[in-house]
Design a protein around this nucleic acid. Structure first.
Length: 853
RNA sequence: GCAGGCGUGGCGGAAUUGGUAUACGCGCCAGCCUUAGGAGCUGGUGGAGCAAUCCAUGAGAGUUCAAGUCUCUCCGCCUGCACCA
C-alpha cells in the first residue's frame, strides 16, 4: 500500500480548505455562537516557537470540535505589531520597523497555515496599521473626554538603557522588564489612565445610554469583584487581587509636640500633626515610635524644630541616591531620630520618638507609620536595632503567653486578645479595631480607610514604534484632543529613531507642528506614543467587525460575538494585559457602549514547554525546537498531537524528541485503516465480527468528548490510542465505527482525518463535483449510553480492604449474589480462616469488601 | 514574608463522587522480519522474593470497611507579589 506521506497530504488539504473558505466564520442565525481566542502574538523575527504551537493547537482543536457540534465559531488571529523589539532592531540595523514587522508577520502566517490552524484569515488585524490604531486613538479620546485619561507630573520609572518611561507593571522588582537594567525615578509629565477608578463596583455614568436588549445591569463590577464571575485559573485571579493590593485599615492622626501647646488637644488644627495608615489599630497602645518616609514633606516643614538637622539631611541625601532596587536589596533597617520632636499617640497621650527611615515608602498609605515592635516584623527589627521599647498589647488566645507578659521573645503578628490597652483590654483584635476606629471618628482623630497598591496606568512612551497620542498642545487653548474626524493621527515615516530621551516624533516637523483644532493658531502635537498594552486592551472587540471604519466595532457585531468564551495564552500576562483589558471592557460598560463587563469568560494558560535538557528554550542555549524542522520530518498532525499528548495543557513540560515517534506510530496505524474492509451494518442481520469494537467506539466517543470539553487533550489522545490499538487487530470494521472515529480524530489531526474520510467516501470524496462534504462539515458523533457500560465486569473481592480475588460477573449483578460469590471464592476462603465475618460492603459494579476479625 | 499551585515507575504522565494505583506513550528486555538497520511486527516490563506473599503515590500521623484522593503536622519544588504598614 501507499506510504503515509504527511507532506503531500497536509499541503493538499490545506490548499483545498483555503480555497473552499472552510474556516470562514459561520453566521447561521439559528446556531449558538462561540468565540475562541488566542492571545495575538508579537511577530518577532524568530517565528513560531513550541509554546505558540501548544496554545494555538489547543484552541484549534476547540474550534474544530465546536464547529462539528453545530456552533458558529469565531476563531481569528492577528498581530500585536507595535513594540520595542522592532524599534530596537531598527536602531541597530536602520531597517524601518514596519519592514521587519511585515516580514515577521509573513513568516508567522505561513507557519500557522503549515500547522493547519483554522483561523478566519479575512478577519486578520495588525495593531500597527492606521485603520487599527485609529481606534486605539479613539479609545484614548474616549477616556480623555470622560476624565479617565489625564496628564500629571509624576515620579516615574525611567529606564536609562531603553530611554523610556515604564509602567509600574513593566518595572516590577525595580528592573526594566525589557532589558533588565535597574529602573531610576524621574519627574516627568506623563499620561495616565485612571484604572484605580474601577477597582470597586461602580454605578453607570449618567450619560450612559440605555442599552437596547441589554441585561439591565446598573453597576459595572469592579476589577476585584468581577473576578468572582469568570472561569479563570485560581492563580491568575490571586495574582490580580494581589496586584491590586487592597487593604482595609484606618488613618490615625498623631500630633507633634512642640512644648507650646498641650500634648492632647481637642483641636488639632492649631497643632502640627501627621497621619499614619494602619491595618492594625488594635495594636496602637503598643506604639513606641513613629516613622516618616524620607520624602515625606513634613520633614522639611519641621526643619526648624529638629535639633539634629545636619544628620537628618545627610540621611535624606543617602536615601535619595538609592534606587528602588538598592532599597529593596538591603533589608537592614536604617533611620535617624528627629531629635526635638515627638509624636503623640491619640489614644493614651504618650509621647513617642519620631524617626525618618527608608523602610517606609512615600508612595504607599500616608508615607508615615506607627511603630509597634511587638506585633510587626519590620518594627521589631527596627526597635531591636535602635533599642526602642517593645510593649506587648496583643496576646494569643492559645497557646497561652509565650515567654510571659512583657517578655516577648519574638514578634507576634497574629490577631489575639488586647491587653495593656486601657478600656480595650479583653477585646479580640477584630472587636478592638471596630471600637477604636469608632472612637477615632467620634474624636475627629482618624477614620476608616481602604488602601490599594495599584497605581494609575502610565501609558505614554517616549518611543517611535507605537500609536501616537491624539492630543495637540496650543499655547492659548492648552491640551486639545484631536477631533475624531481627524483620526488617525498617522505615524510619520521620516523619522530618526535613535533614542535621545525625547520621543523621536519631536524630530518630524510634518508631524510635530500643527494648527490648533480649536483656535487655528500654531500648536504642537503630543510626541509620545502609547504603551503597546493599550493596543492589546481592545483588539478582541475588533475581530467581531474588523473592517468597520465608522466605529471600533458595531454594536450588533459586539452583541453577536462578545464576550470571548474561551481565551488561551501565556501566564506571563496574568497581570498586565488581562487587567488592562478588563479595565477597557469596564469603561465601555460603564459608559453604556456594551452590556457586559468582563471580556474573557473562560481563561486558560498553556504551560511552558521546556527544552529537552529541562531548561527554558532559548536561542543562546541553542536548545530551541523549531516547528519547521519538526513538521518537515514528522508532519503538522504529528506535532499537533505530540504537543497535546505531552501532558496537561497548563503544566510545564519538557520536550522529548524521542517521544514523538509514539505519535508517529499511532498515526501510521491509523493510516493503515485505509486497507480495512468496511461493511454496513443495517437491519438486524449484521453480525459484528470485531467483538468488543462497538462498545469501544462508544466509550471512546464519550471519553474524547468529555476530555475536549475540559481541555484534557492528553487523555483524549490516550483513549484514541486504545481504540486504534484494538481496531488494528481486525481486517474489517463497520463503516459507522470508522466514520465516527475519524470525526473524533479530526480536530487533533485534521489532515490525516480528512484524507481518510475522503478515501472511504470514494468515489464521491469531498471537494469534487457532486462529491460529499468535508469531514469538518459532519456532525460530532453521539454515544449510546447503553453501549458505554460494560456487560461483564471483573468484580474485585477484598478482605479487610486488600484485593484477594477478581471474578468475572455480569455488570448487573445483585448485592446478594455478589456477596455469595465473594464468600465462595477459593482465594478468599484462605483469608477468612479463624476469622469471623463482621460485615460485607458492596459497591455496585465494582467490588465486594469482606470485613472480618 | 504573603498569595496560588505541585510532589505517583528509569522518563512524560493516568486514576468523575474515597473503591483493582501506575491507563496511554517513551525507554528498556525477549522474540520475529531483515545482509543490516529502525520511525517495522509480536509479547513482556513498579520494587523485593524460588514462591506463597510482602512493600510502594515526598515524610509522619488521623478519619474510614477502604486513602494518590479527605483532615492535621512537617519536608521539598514551582509561579506571582514583596520593607504595602
Amino acid at each position: 500500500m501507499e506510504k503515509y506521506n504527511h507532506k503531500k497530504i497536509e499541503e493538499k488539504w490545506q490548499k483545498k480548505w483555503d480555497k473552499e473558505k472552510l474556516y470562514k466564520t459561520s453566521e447561521a442565525p439559528d446556531k449558538p455562537k462561540y468565540y475562541v481566542l488566542d492571545m495575538f502574538p508579537y511577530p518577532s523575527g524568530d517565528g513560531l516557537h513550541a509554546g505558540h504551537v501548544e496554545s494555538y493547537t489547543a484552541t484549534d482543536i476547540m474550534s474544530r470540535y465546536l464547529r462539528l457540534n453545530g456552533k458558529n465559531v469565531l476563531h481569528p488571529q492577528g498581530w500585536d505589531a507595535f513594540g520595542l523589539p522592532a524599534e530596537n532592531y531598527a536602531i541597530k540595523t536602520k531597517i524601518h520597523p514596519s519592514v521587519t514587522t511585515k516580514k515577521a508577520i509573513a513568516t508567522f502566517k505561513q507557519q500557522m497555515k503549515m500547522m493547519g490552524f483554522s483561523y478566519d484569515w479575512p478577519r486578520e488585524l495588525n495593531s500597527s496599521e492606521p485603520q487599527y490604531y485609529k481606534w486605539t486613538q479613539w479609545f484614548f479620546l474616549l477616556l480623555y473626554k470622560n476624565g479617565l485619561a489625564y496628564k500629571k507630573k509624576a515620579k516615574v520609572n525611567w529606564c536609562a538603557s531603553c530611554q523610556t518611561v515604564l509602567a509600574n507593571e513593566q518595572a516590577e522588582g525595580g528592573v526594566c522588564d525589557r532589558c533588565g537594567n535597574p529602573v531610576a525615578q524621574k519627574e516627568l509629565e506623563q499620561w495616565f489612565f485612571k484604572i484605580t477608578d474601577f477597582i470597586e463596583n461602580k454605578e453607570l455614568t449618567p450619560q450612559a445610554p440605555l442599552l437596547k436588549g441589554g441585561r439591565g445591569v446598573k453597576e459595572t463590577s469592579g476589577l476585584l469583584e468581577g473576578l468572582d464571575k469568570v472561569d479563570w485559573p485560581a492563580s491568575t485571579k490571586a495574582a490580580q487581587k494581589n496586584w491590586i493590593g487592597k487593604s482595609e485599615g484606618a488613618i490615625v492622626k498623631f500630633s507633634i509636640t512642640n512644648n507650646q501647646y498641650p500634648i492632647k488637644s481637642k483641636n488639632l488644627n492649631d497643632q502640627k500633626y501627621f497621619e499614619v495608615f494602619t491595618t492594625r489599630v488594635d495594636t496602637i497602645f503598643g506604639c513606641t515610635y513613629c516613622v516618616l518616609a524620607p520624602e515625606n514633606k513634613l520633614i522639611q516643614e519641621l526643619k526648624g524644630r529638629i535639633n539634629n538637622w545636619p544628620e537628618v539631611e545627610k540621611y535624606l541625601e543617602t536615601a535619595k541616591k538609592k534606587t528602588d532596587l538598592q532599597r529593596m536589596e538591603t533589608k537592614e533597617k536604617t533611620g535617624v531620630r528627629l531629635a526635638g520632636v515627638d509624636a503623640v499617640n491619640p489614644f493614651n497621650g504618650e509621647k513617642v520618638p519620631l524617626f525618618v527611615a527608608d523602610y517606609v515608602l512615600v508612595q504607599y498609605g500616608t508615607g508615615a507609620v506607627m511603630g509597634v515592635p511587638a506585633h510587626d516584623q519590620r518594627d521589631w527589627e527596627f526597635a531591636k536595632k535602635y533599642d526602642l521599647p517593645i510593649v506587648e498589647v496583643i496576646t494569643p488566645l492559645r497557646p497561652p503567653l509565650k515567654g510571659g507578659y512583657g517578655g516577648l521573645k519574638e514578634v507576634y503578628t497574629d490577631d489575639g486578645v488586647v491587653v495593656n490597652s486601657g478600656e480595650y483590654n479583653g477585646s479580640t483584635s477584630a472587636e478592638a479595631r471596630v471600637k477604636m476606629v469608632d472612637w477615632l471618628e467620634k474624636q475627629g482623630l482618624g477614620k476608616r480607610q481602604i488602601n490599594y497598591k495599584i497605581r494609575d496606568w502610565l501609558v505614554s512612551r517616549q518611543r517611535y514604534w507605537g500609536a501616537p497620542i491624539p492630543i495637540i498642545y496650543c499655547e492659548i487653548c492648552g491640551a486639545v484632543p484631536v477631533p475624531e474626524k481627524d483620526l488617525p493621527v498617522e505615524l510619520p515615516t521620516d523619522v530618526d529613531f535613535m533614542p535621545t530621551g525625547e520621543s523621536p516624533l519631536v524630530k518630524s516637523k510634518s508631524f510635530h507642528q500643527v494648527k490648533c483644532p480649536v483656535c487655528g493658531e500654531s500648536a504642537r502635537r503630543e510626541s509620545d506614543t502609547m504603551d503597546t498594552f493599550v493596543c492589546s486592551s481592545w483588539y478582541y472587540f475588533r475581530y467581531s467587525d474588523v473592517n468597520n471604519n465608522k466605529e471600533f466595532a458595531s454594536k450588533q457585531m459586539i452583541e453577536k460575538w462578545l464576550p470571548v468564551d474561551l481565551y488561551v495564552g501565556g501566564a506571563e500576562h496574568t497581570v498586565l494585559h488581562l487587567l488592562y483589558s478588563r479595565f477597557f471592557t469596564k469603561v465601555l460598560h460603564n459608559l453604556g457602549y456594551i452590556d457586559f463587563d468582563e471580556p474573557f469568560l473562560k481563561l486558560r494558560h498553556q504551560g511552558i514547554i521546556l527544552a529537552e535538557d529541562g531548561r527554558k528554550m532559548s536561542k543562546s542555549l541553542g536548545n530551541v525546537v523549531n516547528p519547521d524542522e519538526v513538521v518537515g520530518q514528522y508532519g503538522a498532525d504529528a506535532l499537533r498531537m505530540f504537543e497535546m499528548f505531552m501532558g496537561p495543557l497548563e503544566d510545564m513540560k519538557p520536550w522529548n524528541t524521542r517521544g514523538i515517534v509514539g505519535i508517529c506510530r499511532f498515526l501510521e496505524k491509523i493510516w493503515k485503516f485505509k486497507d480495512k474492509k468496511l461493511y454496513d451494518c443495517q437491519g438486524g442481520d449484521c453480525r459484528i465480527k470485531e467483538s468488543g469494537l462497538p462498545r469501544l467506539v462508544h466509550k471512546t466517543i464519550k471519553k474524547v468528548t468529555e476530555d475536549i470539553d475540559a481541555l484534557r487533550f492528553n487523555t483524549a489522545i490516550s483513549q484514541m490510542m486504545i481504540f486504534v490499538n484494538f481496531a488494528a487487530k481486525f481486517e474489517s470494521m463497520p463503516r459507522a465505527a470508522m466514520e465516527k472515529f475519524l470525526i473524533l480524530l479530526a480536530p487533533f489531526a485534521p489532515h490525516l482525518a480528512e484524507e481518510l474520510w475522503s478515501s472511504i467516501k470514494s468515489p464521491l470524496p469531498p471537494f469534487v463535483k457532486g462529491g460529499g462534504k468535508s469531514i469538518f462539515e459532519q456532525s460530532w458523533p453521539k454515544y449510546n449510553p447503553d453501549l458505554v457500560k460494560d456487560e461483564v465486569i471483573k468484580l474485585v473481592i477484598q478482605v479487610n480492604g486488600k484485593v484477594r480475588d477478581m471474578i468475572e460477573v455480569s455488570a448487573e449483578i445483585s448485592e446478594e449474589s455478589a456477596k455469595k460469590i465473594a464468600l465462595a471464592s477459593e482465594k478468599t476462603k484462605k483469608w477468612l480462616e479463624n476469622k469471623e465475618v463482621v460485615k460485607i460492603i458492596f459497591v455496585r459494579g465494582k467490588l465486594v469488601n469482606i470485613v472480618a476479625e
